Structures are given as structure tokens and as C-alpha cells.
Amino acid sequence: MATLLEKAFERAAKLPAAEQDQIATLMLDEMEDELEWQAKFSRDAVKLDEIARDVRAQILHGETLPLIPDELPE
């Protein structure tokens, strides 16, 4: 186990059970969310590659405009 994670568990172990449960819930939710994002990106990887190729071609052919945040509509 990573040293930082061990340190976090040691500190969490000193907290009341209710707070430990809150921390555990947050960690499990975050890990589940990460797995969902990884699955989504792996399913969409081919499409994302196509989009990236199209955008690079548009940039190469001068078909894009620079993004100037100060000039974006509100």
C-alpha cells in the first residue's frame, strides 16, 4: 500500500466511526466514478481519435479561429 494512503488510513482510524464511514463512502464513490469514466472513455476512444484527427486537419487547413476567452459571449 502506498505510504500516503497508509497515513490517511491511520489518521482516519482515530476518528469516530460515523466520520470513518463518511470518508469510506467518499472514497468508494470516487473510485466508482473513476471506473465509470475509464469505461466510458475506453468505449469512446475510437470516436475521440476521429474527432481529434478532424480537428487537427481543420487547424492545418486554417479552418479554425483562435479561442480568445475575453471575446466569448456571456
Rank of each mutant, 00 (worst) to 15 (best):
L60T: 10
F41S: 01
A12L: 13
M1R: 02
G62H: 00
I68S: 04
A57Q: 08
A39W: 08
L48R: 10
P69Y: 00
D29I: 08
K40T: 13
A12E: 08
R56H: 05
E36Y: 10
I59K: 06
F9C: 05
A8D: 08
E10Q: 11
V46K: 11
T3S: 11
R43P: 10
P73Y: 00
F9Q: 13
A24H: 03
R56S: 02
D49C: 02
L4W: 04
A52D: 15
E32G: 06
T25Y: 04
R43S: 15
I23G: 01
K40Q: 15
D54P: 02
L15G: 05
L48H: 07
D29K: 10
I51N: 00
L72F: 04
L26N: 00
L28K: 14
E71N: 04
K14E: 15
A45I: 12
A57I: 07
L26Q: 08
P66G: 03
T25Q: 10
L15H: 07
A8Y: 07
L28Q: 14
E30A: 12
L67F: 11
P69A: 03
K14F: 01
P16W: 04
M1E: 04
F41W: 09
E30G: 08
L26E: 11
P16R: 13
A24K: 15
D33V: 06
G62F: 01
D21A: 09
T64C: 04
T3G: 03
R43E: 14
I51Y: 02
W37C: 13
L4H: 08
M1G: 09
A24I: 09
T25I: 06
M31Q: 13
P73A: 07
R11I: 12
M1D: 05
E74F: 02
V46C: 01
D21L: 06
D29V: 09
K7D: 12
E30M: 09
E6Q: 10
Q20E: 02
R53N: 04
A18Y: 05
F41T: 07
R53T: 06
E6T: 15
E63S: 06
Q20P: 11
P69Q: 02
Q38T: 09
D44R: 11
A13D: 12
L4Y: 06
G62C: 05
A8L: 13
L35V: 12
D29W: 02
I68E: 09
K47A: 14
P69N: 02
E63G: 12
E63P: 04
A24S: 05
D49R: 15
D54E: 08
L4P: 05
E32K: 11
E6V: 10
A13E: 09
D49H: 03
M27L: 15
P69T: 10
R56A: 11
M27E: 01
A52C: 03
D29L: 13
F41M: 15
S42K: 14
D54V: 03
K7M: 08
L15W: 06
P69F: 01
K14P: 06
D33C: 06
Q38L: 12
L26R: 06
T25A: 10
L48A: 15
L26K: 03
L67C: 08
P66W: 02
E34C: 04
L65E: 14
Q38W: 04
Q20H: 03
A39S: 14
M27A: 13
L72H: 00
A2R: 12
A45H: 08
M27P: 00
E34D: 11
A17I: 14
Q38Y: 06
P16S: 10
E32T: 15
M1N: 09
I51D: 04
Q22H: 03
I59A: 01
G62V: 03
I68W: 00
